[in-house]
Simulated scan of single mutants.
Amino acid sequence: MNEKTMRKSRWQTVIFLLIIITLTYLSSIITSFSFADGLATIPEALGWMTSNLMVTGESLDKLPNILEKLAETTFMSIAATTIAAVVSLFLGVLGSKTTKVNNFLSVFARFIASVSRNIPVVAWSLVLLISFGQNSVTGFLALFVGTVGFLTRAFIESIDEASQSSVEALTATGATYFQIVGKAVIPQCLPQMISWVLFMVETNIRNATLVGILTGTGIGYTFDMYYKMLDYNAVALVTLTIVITVIMVDLISNYVRKVIL
């Protein structure tokens, strides 16, 4: 890299940083946000959390009910993810350039993935809440739709990155479309697909808490109920159980990824 190119790169970096700083400053003015006031409230907030968000013996009496709701949320997240993975695999095969049947179905699959992925799970929850009301079906569908969009996109990219040599070899021998997909494409992409599914299980357990607050189900509803009752000790216990569950799922997912990848 010559001196002229390096100088141009430095100027581009400086201009980019100035733009970011300017946008940040303008955003703080428009939203009336003060960084100094925000930093000043941190010690007070930490003090309040230390004195109020403590697990006590009284709050531990609520643990069985909390664990029941947490299990409900966890299983709902796993069910939504696994069923969405099956649908996403079908859409991913149709949407990939390697395995597409025709251009119309490919564009259709990508369109579904784009729409469901770009609308947040919270927005899906609010939309579905109007139709299905406050129940577990609404929470399940919100997680399902959001997961389909993400996994379809991930599966399409995984299939597109698969080696073409085995596909060409089977094509040359006169293999059918389903034989090519089942014998050449899916086996190559399966480890990555499983990894993406495990990632979405972790993500959906986190999302299910917020979805539950909106749909009145699962651990999210339990959190919201104790919060509105100002029972901060129970809120602390709910938060702790969610954190422990997410960490356990993350450890299991990492172990499975090491085995399959």
Rank of each mutant, 00 (worst) to 15 (best):
S9D: 10
T50R: 08
F199V: 11
L170S: 04
N204S: 03
E58Y: 02
I21A: 09
P64C: 00
A175E: 09
G47C: 02
W11R: 12
Y232E: 06
V256I: 14
A71W: 11
N52Y: 01
T99S: 06
M1I: 14
N254T: 06
I119M: 08
T217C: 05
G133P: 05
V86R: 09
M248A: 02
D224R: 07
V127Q: 01
A169W: 14
V115L: 05
L261N: 14
L105T: 15
I159V: 12
S88Y: 01
L53T: 14
Y221C: 04
S28K: 11
L67I: 11
N254W: 02
T222Y: 06
I20F: 15
A172D: 09
V167A: 03
I19H: 08
F90E: 04
M6A: 09
Y25F: 11
I83Q: 06
V122T: 15
L237F: 08
G95M: 04
E157P: 00
A162L: 13
N65H: 08
V93H: 06
P43G: 01
L89I: 14
T215Y: 05
T81Y: 03
S165A: 13
N254P: 01
K62L: 00
R7V: 11
T5S: 00
A45R: 15
V121G: 02
M200G: 07
V249E: 04
